[in-house]
């Protein structure tokens, strides 16, 4: 069963900060990590990225890896510049008040599989 960003946003009560119009995207998997180099090396195209980084660089990484979107955890506020850049690059950014562990648990519950690989 395929899930879209919209499904996830609804199920996890995510606060969609940018890219509302892109939520029909299919989520092919999930990848969690806060080290950009790690995500650059290992996240698979089409995955949703779970991180607590809010720096503009996350948009560059998501764009380079063609990730479908970013979930920022722990209720952290993405920087203005990050949201602006995400708008330009068509990367939806959503915020959860939960921790990485709990967000991943809920995604797994929904059937979103491990998004590691090329």
């Amino acid at each position: 069963m395929t899930k879209t960003l919209k499904d996830i946003a609804a199920a996890l009560h995510l606060d969609v900060r940018t890219g509302e119009h892109l939520l029909a995207r299919t989520v092919t998997g999930g990848y969690a990590g806060d080290l950009l180099s790690d995500v650059l090396a290992h996240a698979r195209k089409g995955s949703v990225w779970i991180t607590l980084q809010t720096h503009t660089n996350i948009v560059a990484v998501a764009s380079a890896k063609e990730l479908c979107g970013i979930i920022v955890v722990n209720g952290r506020t993405p920087e203005e510049a990050t949201l602006r850049k995400a708008g330009e690059e068509d990367i939806p950014i959503m915020v959860s008040t939960l921790s990485t562990y709990d967000v991943v648990c809920q995604l797994c519950e929904m059937g979103v599989k491990n998004g590691e690989g090329v």
Binding site: H42, T100, D102, V104
Partner: peptide, 16 residues
């Protein structure tokens, strides 16, 4: 990876 690790532990009942 971290994602899979969380998922498996969660299924075994470990809380966040």
């Amino acid at each position: 990876p971290m994602y899979e690790s969380c998922g498996r532990l969660y299924k075994k009942g470990l809380k966040g």
